[in-house]
Amino acid sequence: MIAELVSLFPQAEWDIDDDGFVTSAHPFFPPVWEIVLQSIATIVVVAVIVKFAGPSIKKYYRERTERIQNEMDAAAEARQQAETEATQIRSSLGDIDAERSQMLAEAREQAEALLAEGHARIDEEVAALHGRAESEITSWANRSGDELRVEISSHAARAVDAVVAESIDDALAQQLIEDFITRVGAGQSPVQGG
């Protein structure tokens, strides 16, 4: 049968050996008719494949494409979401920075206010201490003056007692009595009351 089939092709690049097998005269290329047959067979196979396996393959590739597309869409969405989150994070970071700056500013302001208040209070206390110290110094000075005056008066009083007591002898005592009698008798009483 093969011989009959080969005979249909006028080319002589092939030959039939003694055992009835077709042999090629070219070391690399088969005979043309084999190529034609192989091509037809290939076309048939491809057609069969396209006929029966094509839809499945197409479906597979379509689904794969869709899956890839979905994955790409998901990736894009994820990327978008990531960018959004990144934006939010950057915004949050910005807000945190702003808030931190605000807090630092407020803390600094409060610290300055406290410092100013502390300075003011210390100044007031120092002024009050100065005033009190000056007042106390003045008071002490006055008190010392008063105490000195009292002390002098006390000493003077004791001195008067001592001097007067020592200066009155019998003669003077009698003279005082006589003066009293004379003045009372004359209506010139030293002291009168009731």
Partner: peptide, 29 residues
């Protein structure tokens, strides 16, 4: 009284004592 006299007659007091004069002097001091 230190010196002098002081007489009390009823409600009347006549004071001529040195003590009183000293006390007056002390009061002024």
């Amino acid at each position: 009284v230190i010196g002098g006299l002081v007489a009390t007659v009823g409600d009347v007091v006549i004071d001529g004592t040195v003590r009183t004069r000293v006390e007056q002097l002390k009061a002024r001091l």
